[in-house]
């Protein structure tokens, strides 16, 4: 266990998959999951770098990301529910009225 690079590469791969998911999926909940995937990928990189540098700051940062992600999920899902309640749809393409 002498190199952090594999972790980082895994992190980038997960991040990329997550971003493609955000771009291609239309179900708002799946989009949200993809966002979570990207956040987790970042956390992995943070924790890996913490180990690389031998201090705990990276872990603290990852901790904060988790807290913020929790808050974000709570509000985001509430928004999705509200939209679903009024529009009977959870597709992100249906909420497209705010435009030119």
């Amino acid at each position: 266990m002498d190199d952090v690079t594999p972790y980082i590469v895994l992190s980038t791969i997960l991040f990329t998959i997550g971003s493609v998911g955000v771009l291609t999926r239309r179900n708002a909940i799946v989009v949200f999951m993809s966002v979570e995937l990207m956040l987790n990928a970042c956390n992995l990189a943070l924790v890996a770098f913490a180990k690389q540098h031998g201090n705990l700051d990276g872990q603290v940062a990852a901790f904060f990301v988790m807290v913020v992600a929790a808050a974000e999920v709570v509000v985001g899902l509430a928004i999705i529910m509200t939209i679903f309640r009024t529009r009977r749809s959870a597709s992100v393409d249906d909420a497209s009225l705010l435009k030119y």
Partner: peptide, 23 residues
């Protein structure tokens, strides 16, 4: 997504991180 992934991997590969310090 692919371009971003490749770029990220290339960027990571550019950096020589050295040995892990360990926790």
């Amino acid at each position: 997504g692919l371009v971003m992934g490749v770029l990220l991997v290339v960027v990571v590969a550019q950096i020589s991180l050295g040995t892990m310090v360990g926790m």
